[in-house]
Design a binder for these strands. Structure first.
Lengths: 157, 157
DNA sequence: GCTCATTTGTCCGTATGTATC
DNA sequence: TGATACATACGGACAAATGAG
């Protein structure tokens, strides 16, 4: 627990508490958000920020604006448990491509089908497809559909 | 009051009580005689002697054989000016430290509080703290406060 | 496209410490 | 004695990015 009367600055105390939690977490695990820390330890948000800043400067965590702070250096694959929905969907499709159930120059399931299969909104399905396109797994032909790319353009795995 | 069951030796406890009285007395004022202390605190005369010896070794009092013990260094004419305010304040704080009302690694009153409690200027309060710091009673953490040192670094009493 | 919630980024003002002049 | 500077800490406000519907 924090000791407000103690010799050590609050943000330093908090940083060492978080250090303990981080040590028990695999890379990619989300660290408690600033708002959560604020509530849990009854501190100002600026103090929580300061503590996380210390951890970041120590290279123990990395922060993605608008998303959160995660254990380990940036670029680390986040544990699948914490993937956003659109990434999970994209992963499911790449799996089917690699397994051969989706063939090069053949259509992938339409947005509508993806919505039903995964129970998500259209925007989420669109984002999954956009993600696959950016990585080179698929390409889109206007007015016709989205197709699996030739194997040469697949990202190296 | 004295605590016969306490951790601290009786003569140390008595010395800190006397320190407080001395702090409020001008140099040259007679300290209670050994016999008076013996009666007031229900202790052996040897214990009273021992407490006064501590104060003498601290330079807080001097003893004239056959006459008595007096506040301040020897040669001081009695009933002169009061001690410098900062010394009075410092002595008050060391008393609280020795009495256990101010604990190691806990904050001492801030300058602002000392100003109000003793009715002195900020510079005076600062000087008192600086005095304590030089003697090893306290240490200061920037932007956080001044704290009681661990007992190991206290001046020997 | 829009809306919503969550999260981080940034800035402000206030209070409280000490440090310095 | 007073004024100023600096750092921590708190609290609030608003913007920007992200994910999701």
């Amino acid at each position: 627990m924090l000791d407000p009367e103690g010799v050590t600055h609050i943000y330093i105390q908090l940083a060492s508490i978080l250090r303990g939690r981080i040590a028990a977490s695999p890379p990619g695990t989300p660290v408690a958000s600033e708002a959560e820390l604020q509530q849990e330890f009854r501190i100002a948000r600026s103090t929580a920020r300061r503590a996380i800043q210390v951890l970041r400067e120590d290279g123990l965590v990395h922060t993605i604006p608008g998303d959160g702070t995660f254990v380990g250096p940036p670029g680390q694959p986040r544990h699948m448990e914490y993937w956003p929905a659109y990434q999970r969907i994209a992963a499911g499709i790449t799996e089917r491509i690699l397994a051969g159930s989706l063939l090069p120059n053949r259509r992938i399931p339409s947005e509508k089908v993806l919505m039903e299969q995964y129970g998500v909104a259209k925007a989420t399905a669109r984002k999954a497809v956009a993600h696959l396109r950016e990585q080179g797994w698929v390409f889109t032909v206007p007015s016709r559909g989205t197709y699996v790319s030739p194997q040469e353009t697949w990202p190296k795995t």
